[in-house]
Design a protein around this nucleic acid. Sequence first.
DNA 1: CTCGACACAAAGTC
DNA 2: AGACTTTGTGTCGA
Length: 407
Amino acid sequence: MAASASAHRPPPPPPALPLLPSLAPQYHHHLPLASLHPALAVSVASIAASSVAASASAAGPAPLSGLHFIFPRASRTLLCTPSFSGSRPPSSSQQQQQQQHATSLHPVRVQINAAINRGLRFEAVRWIAYRRNYLSITINVVFDIPLAALPAPLCSRRLTVDNHTFSVVLDPSSSSRSSAAAAAAAGEQKVVRVKFFAVTVVAEDEVNGRPVDLVQHTSKRDHGPRRKPVIARIRPTLGDGRLAAAPLVPSTHHHQPAQALDRPASATAEPPDYYYSPAVATATSSSSDDNGQPASSFDPVASAHYETTAEVVCFERIQFKRATANNGRKNTAQQMFRVVTILYAAVDESDCSDGGPDHQATNGNSNSNSGGIRYLEIQRVATGGIMVRGRSPGHYADRVGGGGLIQ
DNA sequence: CTCGACACAAAGTC
DNA sequence: AGACTTTGTGTCGA
C-alpha cells in the first residue's frame, strides 16, 4: 500500500526524439472541446442514442460522417491522491503533505472520446471502409476527480490533471475487473504511480476479438514506410462530473455482448460528489512541430516517452491491413472488424515486476515494456462492426449501393 | 478472392 | 495560373 505515496515529481522532459513526421500522431494544443470536430464533443449518452450521426445535440451540427466509439470497457481502476490548490505541480513540501494523505485514494472516472472522422461511409445498415483508404481517428480523454480529492475550500482556480497524482491498481492474481476494484478498496492490491498516460488504436475481429492489423502511412504513401500506430502520449482533461449520468446503453442496431458494456466499478458511486470544471485544453507541449525531418529509425515506445503531450491526438492515414471476409457474398457470414482505442497508464517497469503477463500494451508493439516503462491498460472503447472492402469502390457499385466515399 | 504495387486523375495547397 | 502534394481508385500480377 501507499506505493503511490512517493513524491511525484514530473520527470524532466527527455531530449526530443525525431519522429517520422507523418507517422506521428497529430497533436492539438490549446483547443477547447467545443472547437473540435463535432464528433468529439458528443457525450457518450448521445452517441449511444445514435452512433450513425449525432443528431441535434448540444455539441452542434451533426457530422457528415464519423463513427463514434461507444462500447467502453474498463480494465483497471484508476485512482488519484488528493490534490492541492494551485496551477502548478506540487512543491516538495506539498509532496510531503501528499505522502501523508496518500492513504486516501479516490477512484477516477475515465471517459475516452474517440471518433473516426474520415474514411468511412454508412451504407444501408452498416459502416463500410475500404482497405486502401485512409482513416482518421481522433481521441481525447476526460477524467472526473472526486470532490473528496480536491482542495478544500474549493477555489475557482482552474485545476488540471497536473494537480493530481494518479495511481493504478495492480491485480496480478485476477483479471476480473470487479474483483480488482473490490480488492483495491480493501487495500489488498499493490498501487503503482502513473508516470503519464498514452493512447493507441488497434483493430480486431468483431466476433472473436482476434487482432486485425492496422497500418499507418506517411504522406508518401506507397513510397514511405508503413508502421503500426504508435502508442501516443496524451494528457487527459478534467471532466465536468457528469460521466456517471451517461447511460451506456447499446444502440439499437448493434448486437454487442453485454460484457462489452461493463463500466468501471468506480463509476457506480453516486454522481454528485464530482468536481465540475470546463474541460479546457491546457496542454503543456514543448513543441508543435509536426513537420520535422524524418528520423533514421522509428521506435513507437520511445515516441510515447518523448512525444509532446497534448489533450487531443489524431491518428492520420490509418488503414486496415486486410479486408473483411465474404464481402457482399450471399449465404456466407459477413466478417466485421472494429476499431478499438485504448488508454494506457505508463508506470515504471520496476514498480510492477510482479504484475503478471497481462500488463502489456496490446497494440502489437512487442517492446511495449522496454525502456523501464510498462503500459497498463486502463480502459478501451470500441466501434461497432465495420465492413472493410478490399477492392475498388467500382467493384461494389452494382452490388449493394453505390461506390465512392463520403468524407 | 485477397493483397501489394503501379499508375492516373481529381482535389487541395502553395 | 501553374506547380506541387495528397488522396481516391482503376488495374494487374502474384
